[in-house]
Design a protein around this nucleic acid. Structure first.
Lengths: 224, 224
DNA sequence: ATTAAATTTTAGATAAGACTAAAATATTGT
DNA sequence: ACAATATTTTAGTCTTATCTAAAATTTAAT
């Protein structure tokens, strides 16, 4: 398979991205309905688009049986995700945006077509491995650096780790974490774990903090 | 007239920009044909779009009599131009693109919708007044800083100035200037002017250089 | 194993933006 | 002034990406 830097439409790119993210969750082929919900569109529109993507060899599609990305589709989705995450780094690191403000803008920037631009942006940002939410940035070939990532709630007493991401990424949650002085790169150590409600006392930097089970279940830490 | 940060479509924005640039040249209303040529589209398409822009109060349009921008249209065009030029500065200053490589990418970036983004980008770049081609960057209200700009060919012997822009901006010309070590900000002094062909001997930085009349007629310098 | 419910697809419609061909209006040359 | 030419607009078609409503298929329930 040769390199094929075909340009796809905004809509096609968004569908590929949505399917990529849904594929990670659903073990089977991704359902039309699921895509429709994610894209905030109607199932019938999804069917149409999926047929088109299938013609272009970006997805495997059999009527009534859901969708999976082809290799070509997966690569394409990953280049879009790469762009999205690099732009997020730019917005946070260089323009001092807050990590909960950047998603919408990156949704637009990810569709700018220019290999050269992204290659230079990557260098300018210092070839980062993670975006501001702790999600890994694929390299230009679509390879993702996999890391040992655990939920904070899975750590035992006295275990420690570095915050590398969030599971839920609502603005509310991110703002809450901010108040707790927890961000990507923050070192966390579990000082105590309450049995009956799963709450924790943790060490954040040099200060103690109390967090609920729900919070601990939505925070990823790297332990190695 | 209150502030109205309506979002316009890609196509609408491109028409506004084209009309803005054509309006500077044509004294009268801008001709449908001229817009079609600039936009690489057909006159009939222009008529359709111009009607739509007129409905939205962005242009004044009377059948068969050409188009002019309304105040609202002009302001909108200027915010797009502002974005275009700021992104060009970013591409050249931060990503080390060459000034003849950035136009196409900026054409895409100029359509990203976010006030906040542009405001922060502007600060990040040091609130520049000129883009890499020497064109002025409108401020957020659409005001352009006017400067005394002359063609190099209009300077007399021993007069000097700083290169602030080009009239023609083809890649060929920009590359030629580059070979001559002439870029925005380069100090130039006229050492000699040949009467019969208008060619010049000039001082570029510390070196002498020979340029043709044609070149001198396409280089803007600031003399004050 | 049928029927009921949910999901998915088809068929037909719509809106934006572009096109072609033909009609309408302006401009120009004599 | 008036025919010839150029420009501009209209009318109708096309594509992309949507939608609704109805039909087809799959899944779930008894």
């Amino acid at each position: 398979m040769y390199f094929c830097f075909m340009k796809y439409s905004l809509s096609e790119e968004n569908y590929l991205k949505a399917i990529y993210h849904l594929e990670k969750i659903a073990a089977t082929g991704v359902a039309t309905n699921a895509i429709a919900e994610q894209m905030e569109t109607k199932p019938s529109s999804v069917t149409d688009m999926v047929k088109k993507l299938s013609e272009k060899d970006l997805v495997n599609y059999i009527k009534y049986q859901g969708v999976t990305l082809t290799e070509k589709g997966r690569k394409t989705a990953l280049t879009i995700i790469r762009k999205h995450r690099l732009w997020e780094v730019f917005l946070v690191d260089k323009l001092n945006f807050h990590w909960d403000q950047v998603h919408e803008i990156a949704e637009q920037l990810e569709h700018i077509h220019s290999e050269e631009l992204i290659s230079r942006l990557d260098k300018f940002l210092g070839e980062p491995d993670f975006d501001p939410h702790g999600d890994p940035i694929p390299d230009k070939h679509g390879n993702i650096k996999r890391t040992e990532k655990k939920l904070l709630s899975d750590l035992d007493k006295n275990q420690g780790g570095v915050c590398v991401g969030v599971k839920e990424s609502s603005a509310e949650f991110l703002q809450y974490l901010d108040k707790k002085k927890i961000t990507i790169g923050t070192k966390i150590k579990v000082l105590g774990k309450e049995f009956f409600d799963g709450s924790m006392v943790i060490l954040v930097g040099k200060d103690q903090s109390f967090i609920s089970k729900k919070t601990a279940e939505n925070l990823y830490v790297q332990t190695n």
